[in-house]
């Protein structure tokens, strides 16, 4: 069991049966929480497997809050703050042209504000358009 608070079965979901039910239905959780995390699901493919190994796992050095979970057909990733996928880096690593829109072929979901910035794909906890601008490299 991971100690990372972003882990797949962390928090309330670490409990089970009656203990889970008591916490889940308790008064403390009757209002919406505020979370600074973001979530990405990447559909498994040749490129995604390589990106997980070569790009996402090494990201943990700078952001230890990143949790990764194999969910059968996809990888589930959760992190505090922001996740940036640099497709120029992926392109170099894969040895072929790989644009941000090629990456999006296999990005199965996000929770947070997701956007493209040039050849980067970013999911952030920032509120784009309210707290910050939707930037463009052009």
């Amino acid at each position: 069991m991971t100690k990372n608070t972003n882990g797949y079965n962390s928090g309330t979901n670490a409990k089970s049966g009656q203990a889970f039910m008591d916490e889940f239905l308790g008064d403390a959780t009757s209002k919406i929480p505020t979370s600074d995390a973001v979530v990405v699901a990447l559909m498994k493919s040749e490129e995604i497997d390589a990106i997980i190994q070569e790009i996402v796992i090494p990201m943990r050095e700078e952001n230890p809050s990143i949790a990764i979970e194999d969910r059968g057909g996809y990888y589930w990733i959760k992190a505090t703050g922001k996740l940036t996928f640099d497709c120029d880096e992926a392109s170099e690593m894969l040895g072929k042209k790989y644009t941000v829109y090629d990456l999006l072929v296999n990005v199965s979901t996000t929770v947070g504000r997701a956007f493209t910035l040039g050849n980067k794909f970013i999911v952030t906890n920032e509120l784009l358009g309210l707290e910050s601008k939707v930037e463009s490299v052009y």
Partner: peptide, 20 residues
């Protein structure tokens, strides 16, 4: 109910609505 807690309550409500 655990999937619901993760995807609906903690992440959608927390990351989407909570921040708003």
């Amino acid at each position: 109910v655990k999937s619901w807690n993760r995807w609906v309550y903690e992440d959608w409500a927390g990351i989407w609505l909570g921040r708003l």
